[in-house]
Design a protein around this nucleic acid. Structure first.
Lengths: 193, 193
DNA sequence: TGCGGTATGTTTGCAGTGCTCACATGAGAA
DNA sequence: TTCTCATGTGAGCACTGCAAACATACCGCA
């Protein structure tokens, strides 16, 4: 039948329901546990184990979804940046994502991610590629790998440090300004390469 | 009496013993819990509550110690860097710390740190200042705040991304090379400012 | 020297968690 | 229609953080 819930013993599409329920809890900053997700989905405490091997598996699925969402945010508008200023806006979007969805961001980047051949690894690679494509357009003559990693690192670090309160961040606007300032400080010198 | 353990009912200096025990567990990658720490310290499961309000308090104390250790690593040798290459070695040390003591690094930077007026906040500020001093020496004419934050962000991001497996890291040497390459890619253009 | 207050450690107990295993249900193939 | 097996349930184990109430012995004070 359809993917919507049904009233009977069987749910219909519990896997999807669990994922959306869990994602909602993350967004709202609620304490996250397999049992709590099951409870909120109106199902027995152990039902999730039919769809996820363990808690890590659920978290990985959420992280993969988060990486895809982040990638969508970065590709927002569809246009590949051509100037340092436009590249900086990619950074702003990255940090903004982290601050808007902190719990999810921590899930995406906060644990070892040793999962081999996972949708999660692929989603992370897609983010990397989006950033690399942007860097390649803005700095066609530069060392692509080095600049991409440097830029990703910087943006990711700014996001983490703000998220964890290591950099006082008053308003979101201030944070965005700081991100732009970092890009300017670091990349302006090589504009046009 | 002294700070060493004693055989009797009272421990002597349980607080310090708990901290070192917990730190050992972190270093060895063991699963960390208040009860496990108490067990390993040879004391009842709830004894730690006499010295730490809750689990968070213990973690904050460990994080503060970790920040101090990191700061020591960065100040290693005592000499303030004067060239971009020497500045890059600060970055190498930072990333190296994260990879050598991953669980501790996650404690230090992985949670909200909303603790006001804490030794932890102070320790984080000390790290910031060490980095700022280095940047000020290498780039005396540049925008200190912007470059410091950009550099800290980059280094911190590289550490996090490596730690979480988002950047394939074969050997520690490769990681160090990548960090140096990032510094070169980003700061070489403005050497001498 | 003896005494009592208090910091420190213990015991008991509760609610919550991840996870396993035996069992129940019913949707869909035969 | 029947039977099978994916999907959901329930009881239960070991563990966790944390809160009382209780035990001990170190300390200052008379």
């Amino acid at each position: 039948m359809s993917t919507s819930a049904k009233d009977g013993y069987h749910h219909g599409d519990l896997r999807a329901a669990l994922l959306t329920t869990a994602m909602e809890m993350l967004e709202q900053g609620e304490q996250f546990s397999l049992r709590a997700v099951a409870r909120k989905a109106g199902v027995s405490p152990t039902a999730p184990y039919r769809h996820f091997a363990d808690r890590d598996a659920l978290e990985s699925a959420l992280a993969a979804q988060g990486l895809r969402d982040l990638n969508d945010d970065l590709a927002q508008g569809g246009a590949v940046p051509t100037t340092v200023a436009e590249l900086a806006e990619l950074g702003v979007a990255y940090v903004d994502f982290a601050l808007r969805r902190p719990a999810l961001f921590r899930l995406m980047f906060g644990n070892a991610c040793d999962d081999t051949n996972d949708e999660r690894v692929q989603a992370a690679a897609a983010v990397h590629e989006t950033l690399a494509r942007a860097v390649a357009t803005v700095f066609p003559k530069a060392d692509l790998a080095a600049i991409t990693i440097a830029g990703w690192g910087m943006v990711h670090g700014l996001a983490s440090l703000h998220l964890d309160g290591k950099l006082a961040s008053d308003s979101p606007d201030d944070v965005a300004k700081r991100v732009r300032a970092s890009f300017t400080a670091v990349f302006a010198a090589r504009a046009g390469e």
